[in-house]
Simulated scan of single mutants.
Amino acid sequence: MKLADTGGTLFAADWLEQYAAICFRRAAGGNGFEVLLITTRGSGRWVIPKGSPMKGKTPREVAAVEAFEEAGIKGKVGKKPLGRYSYVKRLDNGKDVPCIVEVFTVETTSIAETFKEQGQRQTLWVRPTEAGGYVEEPELRGLFARLDARLRKTPPDIA
């Protein structure tokens, strides 16, 4: 569901907060970088690993947990968020609720052979400049572009 289609929902409802991970790695042959996209379990749309706040965990720790549970990614999480994006989440009861998602980078160090949601999602590694063509959220597209620019300028360990 597109944010623009929800009209009054954006102004009448409380916004949910979520935390997400843009997982990245050096591309094969060391030529540039790739980011990870995963499918949702319901609609099969391309997204990034994300989830709701967890008691006792910081936002960046939640992003790391979600990256592991949804895609088996282990890695170094950025200390500060890369940015935020918004989307409308359809709850199990059918209600649409706007969400604001704080996004952290995760420099991938390994991929687990087994993880919680294995077999429930597809994964795809693509260049950051290509990732925006797969996702619906315009603000998320902008975050892929921001990460791409950052990776071109600075070493990955400070992305």
Rank of each mutant, 00 (worst) to 15 (best):
G29M: 03
L91A: 09
G56E: 12
L143E: 11
V62Q: 11
V135L: 03
E130C: 06
F33L: 06
S52V: 02
A4D: 15
D96G: 00
G83H: 10
L151E: 13
V101M: 01
T129D: 15
K76C: 01
V97R: 13
T9D: 12
T9A: 07
L16I: 13
V103D: 15
R60I: 01
G75N: 08
I48S: 05
A145W: 02
V126Q: 05
Q118E: 15
I22V: 04
A131L: 09
E130W: 04
A12H: 13
K116F: 02
K116R: 14
G44M: 05
Q18S: 13
T6G: 08
E136H: 04
K89R: 06
I48Q: 06
G133W: 05
T154S: 12
S52W: 00
Y134N: 12
D148Y: 00
D96Q: 04
G44H: 07
E69I: 00
A159H: 12
L91W: 03
K57W: 05
R25I: 09
S110V: 14
A112W: 08
G133H: 09
E102T: 14
C99D: 13
V106T: 08
R141D: 06
R141S: 03
R60W: 01
Y134T: 14
L151W: 06
G8T: 01
P155D: 14
G30I: 05
V103L: 10
K153R: 13
P81G: 08
E113D: 10
G119Y: 10
Y85V: 10
D157K: 10
A13H: 14
F11L: 15
L140P: 13
C99I: 07
Q120F: 10
A112G: 07
L147R: 09
R127K: 11
F144L: 11
L37I: 11
K76P: 01
I100D: 15
E117W: 09
A64R: 03
K89A: 02
A20G: 15
I38N: 13
S52R: 04
T109I: 10
A4W: 04
T129K: 15
K89C: 01
G83S: 14
S43E: 08
K57E: 12
T40K: 09
E70A: 11
W46T: 15
G29L: 02
G75S: 07
V47M: 04
V126S: 03
